[in-house]
């Protein structure tokens, strides 16, 4: 083993990080999110000790439902990355294919991947831990639908940023959804947040899904208000992410980035 060769490869990666804000952010991003999520779980369990039995019931359900959002977002972003990695974007967009049709196809792929992964997760949770997600009842359908809608909105947003900034923004495909996780009150109720953060959290559609899920398990009531908020917010999120995507697509056409995007 020669030190100069090891140093040469080390240097190659340091050069990369020096100029890449997204790669530098990644170094701090996931530890920060972990601290936030697990910190709020700790606060929740300390403040609401009586909630412990409920917490254990929620945990698996919350994990499965969060995965629905994450898989849906990834279905869109990873499909786009596949085209970028294979230098196929110009072939696609020099054909009659429209950006909207491309997004529609990635949404279908996200549903296929989601169906497969959710089936396995639900089955394993039942088989290994006796946890039946369907105990949530009929509310499960609008919950899942809202998580899919938010996953699409985040996926479209992620794709737009990668479209504009290319490979250096690739990390967003894996990380952007997690930015919403601490705020979405996945594993703890909004009540654990300080007031200003609670207001921000309630502006996230997924928060209303997870608050709704807890309400169903605890009170057996159909959470109409939470679902109405979730649908309303998702309509806004989808409209904003689509407008952003089309705006970025115009910029990409002006700058000629479709040919350079894999670089």
């Amino acid at each position: 083993m020669k030190a100069h060769r090891v140093l040469a490869v080390t240097l190659r990666h340091l050069y990369l990080y020096k100029r890449s804000l997204s790669r530098m952010l990644e170094v701090f991003y996931f530890p920060l999110l972990d601290i936030l999520v697990w910190g709020f779980i700790t606060v929740y369990l300390q403040q609401f000790q009586k909630a412990l039995p409920h917490f254990l019931v929620f945990l698996l359900g919350a994990l499965i439902l969060w995965d629905i959002l994450y898989r849906t977002q990834q279905g869109i972003s990873i499909s786009f990355l596949e085209e970028m990695w294979s230098r196929n974007l110009l072939n696609l967009f020099a054909s009659p294919l429209t950006p909207g049709e491309f997004l529609a196809a990635t949404m279908i792929i996200s549903l296929v991947k989601l169906t497969l992964s959710a089936t396995v997760a639900v089955f394993l949770a039942w088989l290994l831990y006796g946890f039946n997600l369907f105990r949530i009842g009929i509310s499960l359908v609008p919950f899942v639908l809202n998580l899919i809608l938010m996953g699409w909105a985040v996926g479209i947003l992620t794709t737009a940023v990668i479209l504009r900034y290319g490979q250096k923004a690739e990390v967003l495909a894996w990380g952007l959804a997690f930015l919403f996780q601490p705020l979405s009150a996945v594993f703890y109720p909004v009540a654990v947040f300080p007031r200003p953060l609670a207001v921000v959290a309630l502006a996230v559609p997924a928060t209303h899904v997870f608050e709704g899920m807890r309400a169903v398990i605890q009170t057996h009531r159909f959470p109409v208000e939470h679902l109405a908020w979730a649908f309303g917010l998702n309509a806004v999120y989808l409209a904003v992410s689509l407008a952003f995507f089309y705006r970025i697509f115009r910029v990409v056409r002006e700058k000629g980035l479709l040919l350079k995007i894999g670089e």
Partner: peptide, 20 residues
């Protein structure tokens, strides 16, 4: 673009096709 691009095509040394 939709009606025009259906009647043209291209090949470039700078693009490829899905490897998988």
């Amino acid at each position: 673009r939709e009606s025009v691009l259906g009647r043209v095509n291209f090949s470039s040394t700078y693009v490829s096709l899905p490897y998988s």
